[in-house]
Design a protein around this nucleic acid. Structure first.
Lengths: 141, 141
DNA sequence: CTACATCCTCTAGCGACTAGAGGAGCAAGA
DNA sequence: TCTTGCTCCTCTAGTCGCTAGAGGATGTAG
């Protein structure tokens, strides 16, 4: 396990692209790492773990501002986890809503695609349904 | 049914905000409408329908470039609808993938929230799971 | 006639990156 | 040693789909 990781190394190991890592540093999500004589950033395992944390949270759809809060909580573990819990719960509600609306949407797209019998556009359901919301089966949006 | 609609009228009737309508015009999604003597845009039922089409398509998650294509097809109904069909199908695939990943994510968030027993952050699952992707039950992302 | 709502244009900002220019550093092979 | 080619650096600007605000003109109701 190398102890001096280049930005490319942490990019590979974390799955976050190099410019994105620099961007995270710029917006203060990652601390400025030390540099080599040749002015190159280098990271240790702690830096890598922090980046992995950020990546995972982004994958879960947490916004950068929420991640900022989570990171602050992580840095100060004397606090009760109610805040972290609240953030996760809020995100869970969002996800559930998004799933529900995507399911309705999926049904609508399926109807559209199903009914398009490769005829002429004049009777194409895709265009028709898009043109007239009233033709939707679902009143979700 | 009024035949001369102001931008505010079409905004109300279509549910698209006024600045957004002007934005759509700017990017060429809507044609430049005629103006009154006082330099105000006015629309007819056709303009309103086109806007409703765009709104519905955006709600279904179609990108502006896809809508551009759909509108072009709509304007020239002599074409086969295979293209419109393909666009809708591609969007359907995207939606299905997004649903699958959100479901996995929901499960993960539920585990996090469930296991957080309002203790101290030191053993908070929210932080812990985010910090270590290996603790996830699902290998979806 | 006076408020006040609505309209106009224009520029700039949002989030979360991504792309590209232009240059320096570094490691490996000929 | 030289050169090739990869990675790194900083910086600015672009992406998408809007949204906000400034500063001013026009239209309408009381």
């Amino acid at each position: 396990m190398k102890s001096e990781l280049t930005i490319g190394d942490v990019a590979r190991e974390s799955g976050v692209k190099v410019p994105t890592i620099r961007y995270y540093e710029q917006i203060g999500l990652l601390p400025e790492p030390p540099r080599t004589d040749g002015n190159r950033r280098f990271y240790d395992q702690k830096g890598l773990r922090r980046l992995a944390f950020i990546r995972h949270a982004r994958e879960l759809g947490f916004e950068v501002s929420a991640i900022r809060t989570l990171l602050a909580l992580q840095d100060d573990p004397a606090q009760p986890c109610a805040t972290a819990d609240a953030i996760a719960k809020a995100r869970l509600v969002e996800v559930e809503q998004r799933i529900a609306s995507l399911m309705a949407l999926k049904a609508e797209l399926e109807v559209m695609v199903e009914e398009c019998r490769h005829g002429r556009l004049a009777e194409c359901r895709v265009i028709e349904v898009l043109a007239d919301h009233g033709k939707c089966m679902h009143d979700h949006h």
